[in-house]
Amino acid sequence: MLAWPKAFTSLLLAFGAVLIPQAASAQDSSVLALSHKSPFNCGKTFYANNWSPGHNPSGSIDWQNYGGDDINNETVRATAGGTAYFYDAGSTSYGKWIEVRHSDGTRTRYAHLSSMARAAGGSMSVSQGTVIGAVGSTGGSTAPHLHYEQRTSTGAMDTSPTVEGVTVSLGQKKSVTSTNGCSGNPYTPEEACGSGYTQIDSAGLTGGTTYLLYNAGNGNNCVVTMKSTNLGTATAVSAFLEPQGESRRTDSGNYGYYAGPVILNAASQCVRWGGSVGSSSYTSPFEHCG
């Protein structure tokens, strides 16, 4: 867990723009070299708000509703690859939040999450597009939104962050459409599993990705493996789900786009999940308990 300052500069501009403890506030002269995508699912459009003056740290983005699209519980993806570290500041500041440390030394932060792919104190290797959490309103927030930062290799804020090739400078508000996680597959994990399911984890495969989703309304988990190659051609693909202490359920065969959905109730249980595309496979440990 990061060490928090004794005093936070407190709270809040329009629509939950929370003030956050600042490790480094000055604009750094180094430039973020990575190409960042939007932190949302392919095709999703949300407003990126770079509040000024008063948003702390200056240059951070609040992602909020665009048109009729509700951002609450929206899937959050890594905007670039690296190692993700998971934290929980409780009812203050960032709330549930994640820092992804990238290979070039830069960092991105994702705050006020309703859920995270790992428990606080954990870490995981991520690729661009890996699901790391879901939008919420934890910590010092008054409405669901995603607080997002890009930091340089020295830890200073980039006050004009760029995602999807769109630069959002201080004082600007721009709509940004995500290409993150776009594989060319016409189906999404949410469509395969059905209404009410939210992605909570994923694992990359050669030729596709296997996803774990959860429905908070009924306590069901869902696993689906989406192909990204040989689309429309029947090739070997599988998905499985195994609540701890119960039998594994698997869907496997030659499919054009995806395997699954495999749906089982596991509201108070750990689950093992995974899938395969051709000879590339993934099997998780028992995790996501309760």
Rank of each mutant, 00 (worst) to 15 (best):
G207W: 04
S247N: 12
N265R: 14
G105C: 11
H112W: 11
V168F: 03
G68M: 07
M226Q: 08
A236L: 06
A80F: 14
Q150C: 01
P5V: 15
A216K: 02
C182T: 06
S160N: 15
F15L: 11
S281I: 00
K37L: 12
S276A: 14
T250F: 01
G194F: 13
G90L: 11
V131W: 09
E242I: 04
F40G: 05
I200P: 02
E287N: 05
R109E: 08
Q244F: 01
S238P: 08
W273Y: 05
Y94F: 13
T138K: 02
R109D: 08
G208S: 01
V168I: 12
E287M: 02
F8H: 10
A23G: 12
S178H: 15
T235G: 02
G155D: 01
A216L: 00
A117S: 14
T235E: 03
N220T: 01
A236C: 00
V126A: 08
Y214L: 03
D70L: 06
S252C: 00
T229I: 10
V135G: 06
K44N: 09
N41E: 15
V176F: 14
S195M: 02
S93E: 15
S169Q: 10
R109A: 09
T188G: 09
G16I: 06
G245R: 02
L13C: 08
L205M: 05
S58D: 14
H55G: 07
S195H: 01
I20A: 05
G122A: 07
A23N: 11
E191Q: 15
Q244E: 11
A17I: 11
Y255F: 15
S160K: 15
D104L: 13
I98C: 11
T79S: 15
R118M: 07
M1C: 06
Q150N: 02
H36M: 14
S35G: 10
Y197C: 05
F86G: 09
A143L: 01
S125W: 01
L11I: 10
T206Y: 08
H55M: 06
V135K: 08
L170C: 10
R272Q: 15
V100P: 02
G105H: 11
P5F: 05
S276L: 00
V223T: 07
N49T: 14
L11K: 12
A23F: 12
Q22Y: 09
P39F: 08
A117L: 03
W63T: 03
S252D: 06
V271C: 06
A17N: 13
S183W: 08
S238Q: 06
T142D: 03
Y110F: 07
A24L: 12
A111S: 13
Q22V: 15
S60A: 10
L12R: 13
T210P: 04
G171M: 09
N49A: 14
C182N: 06
N56T: 11
E246G: 01
T250P: 03
N230W: 00
N41R: 15
E287I: 00
L12I: 12
A192E: 08
S52Q: 10
G140S: 15
T106I: 13
S183R: 14
S125E: 11
S141T: 11
R249S: 15
D70A: 08
L32M: 11
M116N: 04
V135N: 04
S281W: 00
G90Y: 09
G155S: 01
H145N: 13
N65Y: 05
S281G: 00
A78N: 02
V166L: 06
E190H: 09
Y47W: 12
G260I: 07
T79P: 04
T142F: 00
F15Y: 13
A84V: 10
S153T: 08
G122L: 04
G43E: 05
